[in-house]
Design a binder for these strands. Structure first.
Lengths: 227, 227
DNA sequence: TGACTGCATTATGCATTCATAATTACCGTT
DNA sequence: AACGGTAATTATGAATGCATAATGCAGTCA
């Protein structure tokens, strides 16, 4: 008789994992930076034990790296890692797309349709922020639509290391237009519940995004080389 | 001047993560069982702090589940989880197969060829143990051949929850023969470095393995229903 | 001036301790 | 005897303490 959800009282270290993860993802703690254990303890009002437990977990997620006797640093994302990570995300999205096509309700698809319209509008007026929000929502809805929490977890683990705010600025007009076209195609497949079609498109979409990131990275590293 | 590898001194908690993970994978700690914190501390000769840190990591990997104030239990694998996990492993293997085809050296392929021969021999004489060992080696070699440690990590995380000793016994003669045929096909693709072909076969191979597991599970649960 | 050495300071890993929640054992009531 | 409630015990989460490795700094010598 599942009338009630099993209650979940969060422990300190879980709370901290959550908080710290957000700090890293939102770039409040920047890649390569030391994680100031003492400071964070004071800031959160906890002792070192739960904070250190949280760091261990974040390390196993790959968000920070631990050096014995030298503490934790926020993991830096090298180009090599990007190259390794994107293809994995791509196949996960492919799978998610296939499953979502099968499992999403009509109402949910309708909701995504609305989000899509919002996104298109944002594109027309070049509202980057609104665009990214709607885009994010659509992708999340598709991933969740797969009804596979394990897939979701692994996708999140991988995406959180790659999705960094600074990439948002690097969206070229060309890539933006291309992304919109890809989303239009994806919606077409979703409407007719062509699961394989959607899966393939989502994979391609991700790989194209990857190519754009790499191009942006090249520009950055060329700039850096000028110093 | 990279004459020396950067030395890595393992900390206690890393060591413990390793050890405990093995205990779970090797079924020394059985699913659903409580993880006897105190006992393990004594057995390993460490205090609770590093052991508990290790448990947090294993929990984030999904090998154990933590209940606040009620300690840790070895995670149980439900059929639902199997159903969610296998398709993910399948697409990861597909990707791994593609990458391995591109990245394996001729010498490494030769090694796999030898392993393959060993496996076939084991099949002929119905030596289950030798078969599983060679099989494992081949799969590991292919995953490693992808030259993508992140892919490897996620594959390992997923596989370790699913790969349980008791499944080994459940290999039917039919499935065994089918698996052998699939491996033959995979080798053919690998020899000519048909990356997409190998990828597709590895995915199919995994999904067939999945189907076999489900069949085995059905038998088990029907047996259980007889009580 | 600049690099090296030894000491002081700090940060870190781990052990220990403490407070409290969960479990068990016990006992009285029906 | 079975059930319910309460006290004793145990286990757990978190804080504190301690030993040691890493870092920063002053002093020395070229």
């Amino acid at each position: 008789m599942p009338l009630t959800e099993t209650i979940h009282r969060p422990t300190l270290h879980e709370e901290l994992v959550e908080r710290l993860r957000n700090l890293v993802i939102e770039d409040a703690l920047k890649p390569g930076e030391k994680v100031p254990e003492k400071y964070l303890c004071e800031a959160f009002g906890v002792s070192r034990t739960p904070l250190r437990e949280a760091l261990k977990v974040l390390a196993s997620e790959g968000l920070v790296v631990l050096q014995a006797n030298r503490g934790a640093r926020v993991a830096t994302v090298t180009r090599e890692e990007l190259e390794k990570t994107f293809p994995i995300i791509a196949v996960l999205e492919e799978l998610a797309g296939e499953l979502a096509c099968k499992n999403l309700s009509d109402a949910e698809i309708e909701k995504i349709e609305k989000r899509h319209a919002t996104m298109i509008k944002a594109y027309r007026v070049k509202d980057r922020k609104a665009y990214f929000q709607a885009n994010q929502d659509i992708h999340n809805a598709l991933i969740e639509g797969a009804r596979n929490d394990i897939l979701e977890t692994h996708h999140r683990l991988l995406a959180s290391r790659v999705r960094r705010a600074r990439f948002m600025a690097n969206l070229s007009d060309d890539r933006w237009a291309q992304a919109i076209r890809e989303h239009e195609q994806m919606m077409e497949k979703l409407r007719v519940r062509d699961s394989e079609g959607l899966g393939k498109l989502m994979k391609i979409h991700m790989m194209n995004k990857y190519a754009a990131h790499i191009r942006a990275l090249n520009v950055v590293s060329e700039d850096a080389a000028e110093d």
